[in-house]
């Protein structure tokens, strides 16, 4: 294999297979065993599966460290991601097997609920990772963010020159376009991907609605200016879409990581409570 393959396919789905075997084995043990006090989290199977699940959670959290260990000589990070996704998802079933499907309104079930939140956001993440990158490539259209920004700066400079010998209205429109065009900003602004109050859009509108009747060279200059501002609007919106798409790529992580830490906290309480009160 030479070309890249998705982390989901890593090593011919090695970690999907590992997770399935793990789940099947756990279910088999769960079904075969019939402890004296009935199936519960406090049976030996329950303790065993619980310990396994807790260790897995610690290992899943370790990805954050591995990702930043750039000199690591072990398996590539792609393998870690692959294992993270499959083993993480398997917890969805492994944990109910551990507690013998006993749920209630308590800290134990809270830990599970938080974990489900982590897994759900993770699944969203996998989906986002599958869908968004191609859109970014398409939207970027073989250029870089820096190049786009540079082109906008050039257009701004050209607009200033073009407006030099035109009436105040035009100069004002250029200033609006230059000074009141915002890209990004708050989370909602970033995710919106557009800005209805965009200075460039307003500038274009005011130029097109101008009632000043220009003749000859001045009219040609005005047309040139309109073209420049229209081009800038396209570029600005292209960048906004880029910001939006990158925001989408990261948004799930904003939930996934804090939820993961909350899960670990709840897990610690859960373990403490179990061993203190039982």
């Amino acid at each position: 294999m030479i070309g890249p393959r998705s982390f989901l396919e890593y090593a011919r789905y090695r970690y999907l297979k590992v997770s399935l075997v793990l789940l099947l084995a756990s279910m088999a043990i769960y079904l075969v065993e019939d402890p004296p006090g009935g199936r519960s989290g406090s049976s030996w199977t329950g303790y065993g599966l619980g310990t396994l699940a807790a260790l897995m959670i610690v290992w899943l959290m370790w990805l954050g460290l591995r990702k930043r260990s750039y000199r690591d000589v072990g398996a590539p990070l792609q393998g870690w991601t692959s294992a993270h996704v499959y083993l993480g998802t398997s917890l969805l079933l492994l944990v109910p097997l551990h507690c013998a499907f006993e749920f209630g309104v308590n800290v134990h079930t809270l830990a599970y609920a938080l974990m489900c939140g982590v897994i759900a956001t993770g699944i969203v993440g996998v989906g986002v990772y599958a869908l968004v990158p191609t859109s970014i490539t398409r939207n970027r259209n073989n250029t870089t963010l820096d190049a786009l920004l540079e082109r906008i700066a050039e257009i701004d400079a050209d607009c200033r020159v073009a407006a030099e010998n035109l009436p105040d209205l035009h100069a004002k429109a250029v200033i609006t376009s230059i000074e009141e065009t915002r890209i990004g900003g708050s989370l909602t602004a970033q995710l919106a991907g557009r800005d209805p109050a965009c200075g460039t859009t307003r500038a274009l509108r005011s130029l097109r609605g101008s009632e000043i009747d220009l003749q000859g060279d001045a009219r040609l200059q005005e047309l040139k200016l309109i073209e420049l501002v229209a081009r800038k609007e396209l570029l600005v919106n292209q960048i906004r879409r880029d910001v939006r798409l990158k925001g989408l790529l990261d948004l799930w992580l904003v939930l996934h990581v804090p939820l993961a830490f909350a899960t670990v906290a709840a897990l610690l309480v859960h373990v403490f409570v179990v061993f203190w009160y039982h």
Binding site: I2, P4, S6, F7, V73, P76
Partner: peptide, 26 residues
Amino acid sequence: PRAACVASCPTGAIVRVDPAAFVDEI
């Protein structure tokens, strides 16, 4: 060689290829 950029890609998107072999692969 173990390239840090390749080993640190979480999704395995980045690879080092021999261009001639790569065209054949395509």
